[in-house]
């Protein structure tokens, strides 16, 4: 890419859970408007990467930068205030609140603003959500919950949208739909960082990808490059 400042970047990040070394000298740069995938198998450190971006986990060394500013010591809420929002793994809606309340609280950091255009945007992407507004979020189907979770994140008008395993627990048809919507969100100008196990699906819509293996970035290329890379094909696409 160019020499612009990345909206989100890791510089030599190391993290530990107790004595266990999770991320090892991870460098990631994500530029405005990009769609980037982070791929990796189980226990490769994908979720820890997201947790480090949001500040649930603090790096033991290295820096997390948002718009070039070092936010390594910032609390989660303040980082979110800088325009980073996550759609968590398994949706994690506020199940006892209504769909409407879930969306409303997504815009928590924009008090007093008129949210009607944001609602319209969410309803345009997910017409079904509008039908379910008064329902308790916990009673929705998995696919609908995924829509509400994405809607909730969009209500914050994020600059960078983090998605943790969006294909998890969804039927194949819905996974494809989901990625289509992620693509639309990205095309509309939101930078998207998708963490996925489903490499084929993720790379089909991404601009670039990183491959994480036991905490190290082992590959870093454009989506086409990764799909063509024999090493990648062997390790993640199941081809011998």
């Amino acid at each position: 890419m160019t020499s612009r400042t990345p909206v989100l970047s890791f510089k030599g990040v190391n993290t530990h859970y107790g004595a266990v070394h999770i991320l090892k000298d991870v460098d990631i740069d994500i530029y405005a408007g990009e769609m980037v995938s982070l791929l990796g198998g189980n226990a490769s450190g994908k979720t820890t990467t997201l947790k480090t971006i949001l500040g649930y986990v603090k790096p033991t060394s290295g820096q997390v930068l948002l718009d070039g500013e070092d936010v390594s010591d910032w609390p989660t809420a303040e980082r979110v205030g800088r325009g980073v929002t996550m759609v968590p793994e398994n949706r994690r809606l506020f199940k006892r609140m209504t769909v409407k309340e879930n969306l409303e609280i997504g815009a928590y950091l924009r008090p007093g603003e008129d949210l009607s255009s944001d609602y319209d945007r969410v309803f345009e992407l997910f017409p079904r959500v509008k039908e379910r507004l008064a329902q308790k979020a916990g009673t929705l189907s998995g696919g609908e919950q995924q829509m509400v979770a994405m809607g909730r994140a969009l209500m914050a008008r994020p600059k960078v949208l983090l998605m943790d395993e969006p294909s998890m627990g969804l039927a194949p048809v819905l996974v494809a739909q989901n990625f289509e919507i992620i693509e639309r969100i990205n095309k509309a100008g939101t930078t998207v960082f998708v963490v996925e196990q489903n490499a084929n699906m993720a790379l089909s819509i991404a601009d670039r990808g990183y491959v994480l293996q036991t905490g190290k970035i082992v590959l870093d290329d454009t989506a086409e490059g990764l799909l063509a890379n024999p090493q990648m094909r062997q390790a993640y696409l199941g081809e011998v």
């Binding site: 989660t76 809420a77 979110v80 968590p88 506020f94 609140m97 409303e104 609280i105 928590y108 914050a156």
Partner: peptide
């Protein structure tokens, strides 16, 4: 109020509440 809603969110899922920008502290 806003604070009441943030309490409700925190009561349900503290991590997600933070991811939405609520300072649970």
């Amino acid at each position: 109020s806003r604070i009441g809603r943030s309490w409700a969110a925190m009561r349900e899922d503290e991590d997600v509440a933070e991811a939405i920008g609520i300072s649970t502290v």
